[in-house]
Write a protein that binds this DNA or RNA. Structure first.
Lengths: 343, 343
DNA sequence: TTCTCTACTGTGAACGCTCACAGAAGCATG
DNA sequence: CATGCTTCTGTGAGCGTTCACAGTAGAGAA
């Protein structure tokens, strides 16, 4: 008549309970749990049934204590959080990574290193081995946290090519340069010749590479790069607006503009609209990212799709491989031109 | 001359090392780590110094194994992920919760229950005690996952009042009804009398409450609620656009519209612009959320600010309290009218 | 038969921590 | 002087796993 556990959570079954239920030893249950090598079919089946009956779930803490692995990874965002959290790409990346990890039964810990204090805490947490590896989002160059983790030998995969770090850190990135080339070639194929560019921050690889692609294609086409047609932004909407205004002031004859992010391209569209330029008739606009902003814009943006789903799944694949002992790797993924109305 | 640990991570110091270093026992170190009661100042200091010297960080797995707590919480997103991940509010909430938890040294595990399979895995994971509690984002009514967790006695705090669940689940929400009342009163004070509304989904508390606030104020002002002026959307931009078109078709004389989210309000502005209506001269537009979309819109949106930073910190506070043994609680936070250009 | 090899199983010891308990020392109270 | 109370400290046990090792049984070879 007494309640065994009034109002609380029941104590979950242990591997011991399963062993008793199945009539085998703890060792055998453990072997079944970890791949099932060297277990007889009969034992295998008995254990499986016992697990199902008891509703057993492995206690990861006990496992981690002995293996030294945590079987979890961190998703680390350093530096300007505002920029990222406003960026729809970040969402897609975070979701993709979470899901890819879930498929491997690996939990994701979200870590935001904003203040100096948080950086220290997080660095300690990671180097203490509370996560097995880190997915790093920090396009910024020479990140001190990343450097410290790399030195501590923590498996690390960056999103986008890290500038500051040595070659020993893995990364997965879209082919920014090639994407930019595609877009500029497309603008040329439309007959445009006075093509401006609003770049991303030039301390990020994406900013640098996309600008490089732009210059390459122009040069190949025999068009001299005119520095009046080059301005840089910070991927924000506002900076796109400001960039477009500067371009119009400096080169009113411009007939196309390549913008290094969709968010900035939205700003560019606003500025052009205010200036009375019709898009794409007077001036063609090409974006980059294929984020929700691209379809929300009026007119809908012609843009370069970054394969975020593949980027996230590759980041996870590379990280898990590296945790498993493989060497760091770099993965570059192709982009795709998406034609809509703006160019 | 032999490398003790070629190319790998060094084995971190244990509580034992610290005890030896400080010249005390494990027990004393443990006491210092957990609040420092019943420790002499001398021991306290010796241990602190030893911790600093050795760079000791507690092994959470070992601790969790014995305490039965995991000292981590889950951030669970069920149902339509697209909607949330596109929603800037989600970002702010996620960030706020992560930071509030970090201040308590509690890691956040991100859990996305999209497919039926993922729901099962996550439910098992949580009920197995791998997290101490759950921050729930699922405005949808009668969520089966939430129901299961509640029954299992897992501490739970929802964001927004859950419709389906019993009264035993905690939640933190903005005062949707009062916010809606403020906005509609504001529109009335502008002299508008034919006020339309684009509601949120009516299976969510936000959707229901904001509509209720709208109706209350109109009734109080002696204006009969005209159902032709009421359409509902799903918080997406596109549904706002469609909603506005329907309203214009049904009630062309409309001189204001209250839109239950900024994202939808953006859509409404597009539709009004296309229809040649000037905002706010011909028609005033009021949004809800004060998301980045509000300032990005042209004209900038007058809207209702939801106190997301407070919502997230309150969610964390209530959850930790509940994990600590306190009873479930409901917290309703006030909203604020933000005047910009659209109304 | 005897030995070896393979396939499988059980057993203790650890992993690093917390908790309960026992005990010591200091001080006031009877 | 015994007794109690408070404050502090050390010790052993045990949390639920995995891992190394020892051991068993059966098959095949010598």
């Amino acid at each position: 008549m007494t309640m065994s556990n009034p109002g609380g959570r029941r104590k979950p079954p242990t591997i011991h309970d399963v062993a008793r239920e199945a009539g085998v030893s703890r060792g055998t249950v453990s072997r079944v749990l970890n791949g099932g090598h060297y277990v007889s079919p009969a034992a295998q089946e008995a254990v499986d049934a016992a697990i199902r009956r008891t509703g057993y779930v492995v206690n990861r803490h006990a496992r981690s204590l002995i293996t030294g692995r945590s079987d979890s990874v961190g998703f680390l965002l350093t530096e300007p959080q505002e920029r990222f959290f406003e960026d729809p790409n970040f969402n897609v990346l975070l979701r993709g990574c979470t899901q890819a990890l879930a498929a491997h039964d690996v939990p994701l810990l979200l870590m935001l290193a904003g203040t100096e204090d948080e950086r220290r805490r997080i660095t300690r947490y990671i180097t203490a081995g509370h996560v097995d590896g880190v997915l790093l989002v920090s396009s910024h160059s020479g990140d001190p946290v990343a450097e410290e983790l790399r030195e501590a030998g923590v498996p690390l995969v960056a999103c986008g090519k890290p500038i500051g770090l040595g070659s020993k850190v893995s990364y997965v990135a879209a082919d920014d340069r090639d994407g930019a080339r595609d877009m500029v070639r497309h603008l040329l194929s439309l007959g445009r010749r006075r093509i401006g560019v609003v770049t991303g921050p030039l301390d990020t690889p994406g900013g640098v590479e996309r600008l490089a692609g732009y210059k390459e294609v122009l040069t190949e086409a025999g068009i001299a790069v005119d520095e009046r047609l080059v301005v840089s932004g910070d991927y924000s909407r506002a900076s796109g607006e400001a960039g477009a205004e500067r371009l119009l002031a400096r080169a009113p004859e411009m007939d196309a503009v390549f913008v290094a992010s969709d968010l900035m391209a939205q700003g560019v569209l606003s500025a052009l609209h205010r200036a009375g330029r019709r898009v794409p008739d007077d001036i063609a606009v090409g974006g980059f990212d294929d984020s929700p902003a691209a379809t929300a814009a009026t007119p809908a943006l012609t843009t370069i799709r970054q394969p975020w789903d593949r980027i996230s799944s590759e980041m996870v694949r590379v990280l898990l491989a590296q945790i498993g002992g493989e060497d760091p790797a770099a993965v570059i993924l192709p982009t795709e031109l998406v034609r809509r109305e703006s160019a």
